[in-house]
Design a protein around this nucleic acid. Structure first.
Lengths: 370, 370
DNA sequence: TTGTATGCGTTATCAA
DNA sequence: TTGATAACGCATACAA
């Protein structure tokens, strides 16, 4: 059991501060030396008491003026704002969080911070949060369900709501998390929890049709992690489409959704009869392609390869990777917007936005060889 | 001027939560439903008062037992810990930060969260922070000096120390920041501020020697942002080495340190007489290479290209990029360790660790053509 | 070693 | 509309 104390005060949290989109409303650029609470020089930050004294009103009035505009007369509102500006007042987030429990912060947990697939999810979520003056809080679970749960649990103590991107947790665990604070899940459907899931069928249908037109009749799927809901969905979608088209499809391997996972699937892929292979994501597709090319396999003439997501770098390869693009940014935006909605008025009905995938044809797919 | 209030409560901060390295000391994996402060169900988190009541001691004793081990008798220490464990107690970070001003948090500002070059800096910094039970806080400045200053300024209010990676700020601004709380700078030398800078000469020397042995006599350098201290350093290093070797070297362009910045430098590179070109970073090198290849230039037979950093994806290209690897992770680790040192005992002398670059030869460099 | 009392900066409740 | 005052949870100076 974890207890507090210096040796366990670490809550495993990183934070990221993007450029302030409200910069037009500030002028601190010429003054990097105004006081910060408990700063080095011993100077202390101005409080609402200082503002109150300067404006000639009560501190509680200052609090109202600054946090609940409209609950105070126009004249005192101005007096307070002027005084606050003059003192370079900045609210103490700790003091505010203490009585309210609110931090104007939303958590986002991704499984791997170095996976470019999450770039856009993060940026989308950040933009949606910033739009409403909220702060985004990221978590990395290192592809481990256990790490994910502890990260989420800790995060929950300091955020107003939480977004889980491609979680590895069980449905039950996710529901338990969602019971505590507003939550949303990306890339996975969980009964009873607001879920943002892209329609993979659209992209897969186009991809299979494309492969069929190229003469392929035997496909393979290099699966992602066993616990990945989305990996299962992608396989289902591929299988269904192949059945419909009269093509054969098999799962050849399963592993970590990284470059290395893709490399390790190379042997199994070569052993199969497939002439075209889908990979769970672009990272695996690139790893597979490079491993195969190293062994003399020509892409796409000997084998066609397709990925999912369309990440940074997927067009660096030779040939550039054909892939099924996911609405990553849109998912991040929608998830945060949903949390914000719940925060504004709890218990409103969730209406999932339409999120569609799209086939991006580049060079790694071609006519069936020989 | 910025004032507090709901419409401006956003402090532009994201947070990232990595897997907890202390997971062996906890057992919450089977219990995702214990109370969180101000949770949905209305349940409230246990406080030191609850622990005090259960252990039969005073709350202040609980506080001491949990935050300053050794200042309390062994028996009460155990009583308190047991009670805390039984209640699943988790310290309220806001309440702790209020009187102390300490958050056990260290800030890190990078210019672009999607630049893979920062992956290792981030992971290194995170690891060093986690090692000491500190939390890492990230900031993105979007390559803008102004955004960087506001991000840093805000971050300063909630962290114990700050790390600036490749900052675009002026030396003066950086010093002003460092005057407020412990600070460290990565990839740049700032007088009066602890700086972590890799020795570029080592890698450059090897690279120029390598190019000379391949018959090159005329080099070019595609510079990074004008305000980039490191870009200037790299150019100096290249120029000095070329002078020494009797080779000519020119700066052909300057721009944003991204794929696009590299692409835009293509025309200038073609117009130059150089047969080998260094780029400020791998991102630019890849952008340049792809743009050139699209125009029919063969790499490396028509032109040799070198990058800096050795980022994710730099080996995806054809040919794979030759580059000068930077000690990214080590820089992140060292910067955080330095901050921690300052926090432990202020005003200790700073001893910079040795950080060396290294030439990584791949396929983008070859014998001078024709 | 432990208990008492007070402060940290803000919000919220209640009167005026 | 505004002012006085009591939480919020923890740390700490001081007293015992």
């Amino acid at each position: 059991m974890r207890i507090s104390g210096p040796a366990s005060g670490y809550d495993g949290i990183w934070r990221i501060v993007p450029e302030d989109h409200l910069s037009d409303s500030m002028d601190i650029a010429d003054d990097a030396t105004r006081p910060v609470a408990k700063a080095r020089g011993g100077r202390t930050a101005p409080t609402i008491y200082d503002i109150a004294a300067l404006a000639g009103v009560n501190p509680s009035t200052v609090s109202r003026a600054l946090s609940k505009p409209g609950r105070v007369s126009a004249t005192t509102q101005k007096k307070v704002e002027d005084a606050a500006a003059q003192l370079h007042y900045q609210v103490n987030v700790f003091a505010r969080a203490l009585p309210t429990g609110r931090t104007n912060t939303i958590g986002l947990i991704v499984s791997d911070i170095t996976n470019p697939a999450f770039f856009e999810v993060i940026r989308g979520a950040e933009a949606a949060a910033a739009e409403r003056d909220y702060t985004l809080v990221l978590a990395e679970s290192a592809e481990s369900a256990e790490g994910e749960l502890t990260a989420a649990q800790r995060m929950l103590a300091t955020v107003d709501g939480i977004v889980l991107a491609s979680p590895r947790l069980s449905d039950e665990q996710i529901r338990a998390l969602a019971a505590q604070k507003p939550a949303a899940v990306i890339n996975r459907r969980v009964e009873g929890v607001d879920s943002l899931v892209a329609d993979t069928d659209a992209g897969v249908t186009d991809a299979v049709r494309h492969l069929a037109s190229l003469g392929h009749t035997s496909l393979a799927y290099v699966a992602g992690p066993e616990r990945s809901w989305m990996s299962a969905r992608r396989w289902e979608s591929i299988k269904a489409r192949c059945d419909w088209s009269g093509m054969s499809a098999t799962v050849v391997a399963s592993g970590v959704p990284t470059l290395d996972g893709g490399r390790r699937a190379a042997a199994a892929v070569r052993a199969s009869v497939a002439t075209a292979v889908f990979c769970y994501n672009d990272l695996m597709a690139i790893g597979l392609m490079r491993e195969l090319q190293g062994a003399g396999v020509r892409i796409p003439s000997d084998l066609s390869i397709l990925g999912f997501d369309n990440i940074f770098g997927s067009d660096f390869t030779t040939p550039p990777l054909s892939t099924i693009k996911s609405p990553l940014r849109e998912s991040g935006v929608a998830a945060v917007q949903r949390i914000l909605e719940e925060l504004d008025q709890p218990r409103t009905a969730f209406e999932s936005p339409s999120l569609v995938t799209e086939l991006v044809l580049r060079g790694s797919t071609g006519p069936v060889g020989r």
